[in-house]
């Protein structure tokens, strides 16, 4: 494996021998990889490679057939995610996620979306509703704090002007940003984004890149993202894992992955008469991304 510089880093998420079988279909087959603390890790692969299945296994929405997923928090506490149910993965292990097809609470306002994300914190502050219902000041304080927190993320996602509008009324790009902001309001250490740039125009992708970078810089949250948009992947990720047919075919920094013949074959196919084209494509990618040495 290339990318030896990352090997010295501290892994936040370790996926070991993960397999997921749907009836006769092996969606993921003996997949192992690591995501490092403070990194932006990209999970790429052709359609149907099993990327979203990996996400669903990590975030507890699927129970994997085999394997182990270990999440190590900053404080050193370890969680075996495959044993936890979906909401515990977020509540206890501090892993947040977004969805490929945006799942906002469209009838709630943007601000309310961000307040719902702080549910567990507020439940505790309101004494499981009882104290809050009786009007204890502790809840009022916590509620004010949660609005401050929401404001912070509204500002980051550039949504402050739309705070009191229903989430369903936002344009598509803003909905994507809101979903990320909402996930961040749960206070995660590890953020999983399922195709955050899907359907965004180049300008919006750029804004998204900035948002992801600033999330990493300001909160130290590690990010794992699935993405098809190579301009996003190559631009912001520190570490790329490539899947095909549920198996890992490449793993390393973006440069390494970009030039890996297996990756090229997976993406472009390797018919004899297409080999020429393949090399041309590589040239193009190399030229498109500045500061890289062409093959």
């Amino acid at each position: 494996m290339a990318g030896t510089n990352t090997m010295t880093k501290d892994p936040i998420l370790k996926v070991d021998h993960l397999s997921m079988r749907f009836g006769g279909l092996m969606a993921i087959n003996d997949l192992s990889f690591e995501a490092y603390r403070g990194d932006i890790t990209a999970l790429i692969g052709p359609n149907g490679a099993g990327k979203t299945t990996v996400f669903n296994c990590i975030t507890g929405f699927y129970k994997p057939t085999m394997g182990m997923i270990t999440m190590r928090q900053k404080a050193g506490k370890e969680y075996l995610l495959e044993r936890m149910s979906d909401f515990e993965v977020n509540r206890d292990a501090k892993v947040a996620r977004t969805f490929q097809n945006i799942r906002l609470f469209s009838g709630l306002t943007v601000l309310e979306n961000l307040l719902v994300a702080q549910h567990n914190k507020l439940m505790l502050a309101s004494g499981y509703t009882v104290l809050g219902l009786l009007g204890f000041p502790a809840y009022k304080k916590a509620a004010a704090q949660s609005i401050e927190q929401a404001k912070y993320w509204l500002d980051k996602a550039n949504l402050t002007d739309r705070a009191d509008d229903p989430a369903g009324d936002l344009p598509y790009g803003a909905q994507r940003r809101l979903e990320i902001a909402r996930a961040m309001c749960t206070g995660p250490e590890f953020l999983c984004l399922d195709e955050p740039a899907a359907g965004l125009n180049p300008r919006e992708s750029l804004v998204l890149n900035q948002l992801l970078r600033s999330i990493r810089k300001d909160t130290g949250t590690s990010i794992l993202l699935i993405e098809h948009d190579m301009s996003v992947v190559m631009e912001i990720s520190d570490h790329v894992v490539v899947l095909e047919y549920g198996q890992k075919i490449s793993d390393g920094n973006p440069d390494h992955v970009k030039n890996d013949p297996k990756v090229i074959a997976a993406y472009l196919g390797v018919e004899d008469d297409e080999v020429e084209e393949v090399f041309e494509q590589i040239e193009e990618i190399a030229v498109a991304a500045p500061g890289e040495t062409p093959k």
Partner: peptide
């Protein structure tokens, strides 16, 4: 589903 992804039981 979004609720569960936000840690709500």
């Amino acid at each position: 589903i979004a609720c569960r992804s936000l840690g709500i039981n």
